[in-house]
Design a protein around this nucleic acid. Structure first.
Lengths: 127, 127
DNA sequence: AAAAAAGTTCGACGGGCGTCGTACTAAACT
DNA sequence: AGTTTAGTACGACGCCCGTCGAACTTTTTT
């Protein structure tokens, strides 16, 4: 090999063909761009009572950790629900030490689907 | 028995304990009352692309028959989607000869969840 | 260095969903 | 009366969803 690529880097590149994100810490939690947010996915994400509660709780107080909700499910189920919300573009998760801070993507959602989040939040508060 | 209940009525009442609606033609297609409409059920009903298309089509032109949508699925699947929408309280179906006329429950939905339907419809139109 | 804290990953399980085909019902049109 | 029209009812199939437990990673605390 005449290129300055170590054996480790080559192995990593090969592995990336199979498993894209690999090791970049920032991209480990991948979010859709605001234009990529799909309505059906958002509505599906919000159609679960527990996820609706998460979103309502986040609307009341932003930047909360996953554990702060004290949901009546195991941690793995908790991870699942937050991932569904994140991949639908409803919330943003950022790594912060050992925890993940969750925030509502209000601006992005409002830009893509004006008024939708607010009406859902108001509806959730009413029930 | 000293109450004025005929044998027929008693039998009907007993049967109703096992199979509530039974034979009343109007109740064959049972809809939830507006206060009984649940948010999660509505969001779930709207989270399917085909049902979203049905609702959008109904918003454009009301009182349409099931067949008028020419959906790319079989009739039984079609029946399924309309039932999900009806049982969630999103649409109303009324028997009319051999067909069922579908209409959006705008007033009921607006009363229960103000602005929700409109924002979803606007979001659907945008995508 | 060891333990604790906060999540993630993986495999598994049961139930529900979207889809289909076949059989059926009820009204409408020959 | 027979046929067409417009749906419904009932299984059946594969797949996805919500849930769990066990093992793991990473950062923080002791």
């Amino acid at each position: 090999m005449d290129t300055h690529v170590t054996q480790g880097q080559a192995a990593a590149a090969t592995a990336r063909l199979v498993e894209p994100p690999a090791k970049l810490d920032e991209d480990k939690l991948c979010h859709p761009a605001s234009e990529e947010i799909e309505l059906a996915a958002v509505l599906h994400a919000l159609s679960d009572p527990m996820r609706l509660a998460i979103v309502a709780g986040l609307a009341a107080e932003d930047q909360r950790t996953c554990g702060s909700f004290n949901l009546p499910v195991t941690k793995s189920t908790c991870t699942h629900h937050f991932r569904v919300l994140r991949e639908a573009g409803v919330i943003r998760q950022q790594l912060e030490g050992t925890t993940r801070l969750n925030s509502l993507r209000r601006a992005d959602l409002d830009a893509r689907f004006p008024g939708l989040l607010d009406s859902v939040l108001e509806a959730a508060a009413r029930a």
